[in-house]
Write a protein that binds this DNA or RNA. Structure first.
Lengths: 94, 94
DNA sequence: TTAGTATTAAATTAAAAGCTTAAATAGCTG
DNA sequence: CAGCTATTTAAGCTTTTAATTTAATACTAA
């Protein structure tokens, strides 16, 4: 693995390494969700969820679409879906 | 994914998300290495490598054996090998 | 247009992580 | 034992990161 890859992947892992952000990514595996929906599950403030979402968007992991008052978020990068699936397989099952 | 898993995996990712530590883990995929060997490749001080290794050991990711003056390190957790292989496949190839 | 809801931005404060340097430990070898 | 090498630990300092609060913006529907 070249240094440039190491740098990029480290940055990706760092973005994913916050419990709230990781949980958001897990929830977004199944369906797209608005900020309010996410807030209910992770038990924090709207503003806090929004901040974490913007970190995920800046990394290119999550994308958003706007519909009326709501902004729906989903995982943009297919590879993240695969990576999380692998982590589930390795660390959650059996 | 339950909250406990989220917490554990987030901690694991955090440990792996430092460029030096990630590079160390990549190097240890192939063979065990002493602190000095690692230092040559990551361009920092012995003390710094040692500190990063102790973080990796505390997480249970890396184990060490002593031989004469040298301490040889290797990846202890098979799942980390698999996870890094997956990351390579997703983010480094093609 | 106004009230209400959802989202974002900015600023502050507190906590954690990282690097450097220097000192300490452990084991080999002459 | 004395000197050398490899590694670890500790202290001090700086930089990042996290969480919270507050203010601002955007849109909808009555």
């Amino acid at each position: 693995m070249q240094d440039e890859h190491v740098k990029d992947i480290a940055a990706l892992l760092k973005t994913m390494s916050h419990p709230i952000r990781l949980k958001i990514l897990c929830m977004l595996q199944e369906k797209e969700m608005a900020v309010g929906d996410i807030r209910e599950e992770v038990k924090t403030t709207n503003a806090n969820v929004s901040q974490h979402l913007s970190i995920l968007r800046n990394q290119g992991i999550v994308s958003s679409r706007k519909d009326a008052n709501f902004i729906y978020n989903k995982i943009e990068d297919e590879r993240i879906l695969e990576l999380i699936a692998k982590m589930r397989e390795l660390f959650c099952e059996v």
